[in-house]
C-alpha cells in the first residue's frame, strides 16, 4: 500500500518535474531576486540619504535637494569640540584594542588548550558581552568605580570597552586556533622548542591575520561605542557621544557630514579586512 502510493507520487513528481518545474523554478528565482533587491534597498538607501544630504545646501533635510555645497564639511574642521572628541576616540579605541588583545589572546588559548575547573563558567563569562547589552556592563562598572572612589575619565571608558570587546577577540582568535592542526605544536616541541618559543614562532604567526582582523573589528566597535561610554566617561566626550549630544538638539546637515566621513573610513577598513581574510585563505590553501 505505502510503496504503491510512493511509487505513484514519484511518477507524478517526475512527470511534473519536466517543464512546469523549470518554469516555476524560474519564477521562484525571480521572486527571490526581487526580494534581495528590496532588502539591499532597505539596507543602503538610508546610508545614501545620509551621504547625499551632507552635500545639500539647506539646513533642513527635505526633498527635493536645493543645491550642492561643501559648507557642512568646512564647519566641521573649525569645530574644536568635535576635533577634541575625535582625538579622544582615537586614544580610547587604540588603548582598548591593545588591552583587549593582551587579555583576549591568552583567554582564547586557555579555552582551546587547557582543562581547568570552572572552564565552562570562564568561557561563558567571557562570551557573555556578545549578547549582554552594553548598558549592563556600563552600569555595573560605574557602580564599582563609584563604590571604590575612582573618578570617571577616558581611562575608565577604556577599561569598559576592553571588557565589552573581549568576546570579539576571543571568538575570532579561538575559531582560528581550532582550525590549526595540533601537530604543529607537537612538531615544534619535538624539535626542542620551549613553550614560549612555540607560541612566539609557531602559534602567533599562524594567528596573525585572525589577530589583525580582531583588532580592526575591536577598534571600529570601540570607536563607535555608546552604551558603555555613556556611563563611564567623565568630562571628556568621545566622537559618538559628541554626535549623540548634538542629535538631542535635532537633525542637522553637520551630523550628515561627520557621518559621511565615518562611512568612508568604515569602507576603507572593510576593504582592508577583506584583503586580509583573502590572504589568510590563500596562505591556508598553500599550507
Amino acid at each position: 500500500m505505502s510503496t504503491a502510493s510512493t511509487d505513484t507520487a514519484m511518477i507524478s513528481t517526475v512527470s511534473r518535474a519536466r517543464k512546469p518545474g523549470l518554469v516555476s523554478r524560474y519564477a521562484a528565482d525571480m521572486a527571490f531576486m526581487a526580494f534581495v533587491a528590496l532588502l539591499m534597498a532597505f539596507l543602503y538607501v538610508p546610508i545614501w540619504v545620509l551621504i547625499i544630504f551632507s552635500f545639500n545646501d539647506s539646513r533642513t533635510l527635505t526633498w527635493p535637494l536645493s543645491g550642492f555645497t561643501l559648507d557642512w564639511y568646512g564647519t566641521l574642521f573649525s569645530n574644536q569640540d568635535l576635533l577634541a572628541a575625535i582625538g579622544n576616540s582615537f586614544y580610547v579605541a587604540t588603548s582598548a584594542t591593545i588591552l583587549t588583545l593582551i587579555v583576549g589572546i591568552p583567554a582564547a588559548m586557555a579555552i582551546n588548550k587547557f582543562q581547568f575547573p570552572g572552564k565552562a563558567l570562564f568561557r561563558r563569562l567571557i562570551l557573555l558581552p556578545i549578547t549582554l547589552p552594553g548598558i549592563v556592563t556600563g552600569i555595573s562598572m560605574l557602580n564599582m568605580f563609584r563604590l571604590f572612589g575612582f573618578n570617571l575619565s577616558l581611562e575608565t571608558v577604556i577599561l569598559g570597552h576592553a571588557t565589552a570587546l573581549l568576546s570579539v577577540v576571543v571568538t575570532q582568535v579561538y575559531s582560528r586556533l581550532q582550525r590549526l592542526p595540533r601537530s604543529l605544536d607537537e612538531a615544534s616541541a619535538d624539535l626542542g622548542a620551549k613553550g614560549w618559543q612555540t607560541f612566539l614562532y609557531v602559534t602567533l604567526p599562524n594567528l596573525k591575520t585572525a589577530i589583525i582582523g580582531a583588532a580592526l573589528l575591536s577598534f571600529v566597535l570601540s570607536f563607535d561605542e555608546i552604551p558603555v561610554t555613556f556611563f563611564l566617561t567623565g568630562r571628556e566626550n568621545t566622537l559618538p557621544m559628541y554626535i549623540y549630544s548634538t542629535m538631542r538638539r535635532g537633525v542637522t546637515p553637520e551630523i550628515n557630514a561627520v557621518g559621511t566621513l565615518i562611512v568612508l573610513a568604515s569602507l576603507v577598513l572593510i576593504v582592508i579586512s577583506v584583503i586580509m581574510s583573502r590572504e589568510a585563505n590563500r596562505s591556508r590553501q598553500s599550507l
Partner: peptide, 9 residues
Amino acid sequence: VSYLLRAYT
C-alpha cells in the same frame, strides 16, 4: 558603519 549613524539616518 557606525551604529549611531544608522539610527540617526
